[in-house]
Amino acid sequence: MGIQTLESLPKTMAAVVCHGLEDYRLEEYPTPTPGPGEVLLRVESVGICASDLKCYMGAPLFWGTGDTPGYCQPPVIPGHEFVGRVVALGEGAGEKYGLSLGDVAVSEQIVPCWQCRFCQRGQYWMCPNGDVYGFRQRAFGAMAEYVRLPADAINYRVPETVPVAHAVFIEPLACSIHAVQRGEIELDHVVVIAGAGPLGLGMVAAARLKNPHLLVAIDLNDHRLEIARKCGADLVLNPRQVDVVEEVLKLTDGYGCDVYIEATGHPAAVTQGLAMIRRLGTFVEFSVMREPVTVDWTVIGDLKELNIHGSHLGPYCYPIAMEMLAKGLLPMEEILTHSLPLASFEQGIELVHAGTESIKVTLQP
């Protein structure tokens, strides 16, 4: 049957190409062609994630430490938060994913190998051979006019009930939902979410669905805290204005919060969480840190016997994220603060880095 196409495709496309840390360039790049089982999207919108910023700035996870290799494989097109319209289908791809030409679609951020121990057990998001879009040669990202979804990708058709402009938030919201699931929240819990950026706000909205006894959001930015209220936070705290550890201890008769989710990416938020969480509490670490974090592990072990849960990607959460967006459970018009042309990617990165004027910054190729 061969390739099905919706429209005539150009030979080249505009794309942001990562050549190294702080070396991203807008270039003309060959337009990809889908092979068997592959899908080609015309990109409608692509988000700039905090991990994109950290890769740009040289975080060890992406560029290595000397002893361990980095995850990023330049030259590569960045961008793993994206939504696009299906413009070409490789042989068998439509039937495989239930996609048709013209559909709006998203793809989970990791392309697994489907052969390793984790993939065979359904734990594909921990695949050691998996490639996250935008960092790896097998899965170029969507800071471009077109993006190719490899045959091993996990793709979804976006329902018409989700506005296309909001669908770019499906990926980060899925990550937020997974982090909340890792918190194992119960009805009588006091839950603290540190960080009211795009991911933290998604966590607040997801945690609200768990209906805990008290849901607290912490951030240094009062405007973001107001958005957190609209996402469902019962109480918001700014560390510049109050001693947040003292406030949480007061609220809990000195015991501390039951669940603490770290979504700031700042080392101080880790030590803050260890100070305010109760004995036998659950600490969820979500962020990609720019530098190593040192804490007193005695607090984790001998003093409080904490449950320490990591959180990685958004497995099995994309359908839930789409449903949340369809129901309007987040104030998306206030979360999606900046929509820039692809050529303004450097301005977008600066906005994310500053974090004072923006919440979610997106690029429109």
Rank of each mutant, 00 (worst) to 15 (best):
I3L: 15
A14K: 12
G20M: 12
Y24M: 08
R25G: 05
L26N: 05
E27P: 03
Y29V: 08
P30M: 03
T33M: 11
G35Q: 14
P36H: 04
L40Y: 09
L53C: 02
L53G: 00
K54S: 05
K54G: 05
C55H: 03
G58E: 10
A59L: 07
P60Q: 04
D67E: 13
Y71N: 00
Q73N: 00
P74W: 02
P75Y: 00
P78I: 03
F82I: 04
V86E: 09
V87C: 09
E95I: 05
K96E: 13
L99I: 10
V104P: 11
S107L: 12
I110C: 07
V111M: 09
P112T: 08
C113Q: 05
W114C: 09
W114Q: 14
Y133N: 08
Q137I: 09
F140A: 06
E145V: 00
N155K: 01
A165P: 00
A165F: 00
V168F: 09
F169I: 06
I170E: 06
E171S: 05
E171M: 07
L173S: 04
S176F: 08
I177E: 02
V180H: 03
R182V: 01
R182K: 15
D188I: 03
V190W: 06
L201V: 11
A205S: 14
A206T: 02
K210F: 13
V216C: 14
L220G: 04
N221C: 15
H223E: 14
L225N: 12
E246H: 13
L249I: 03
C257I: 03
D258E: 10
A268H: 10
A268S: 14
T271P: 04
A275T: 06
A275G: 01
V284R: 05
L303T: 10
E305C: 12
L306F: 01
L306T: 03
N307L: 13
I308W: 05
H312Q: 15
P319K: 02
M324K: 03
M324Y: 06
G328E: 09
L329N: 01
L330N: 02
I335T: 05
T337A: 13
S339C: 10
P341Y: 01
A343M: 04
F345Q: 04
V352N: 08
K360F: 11
V361T: 15
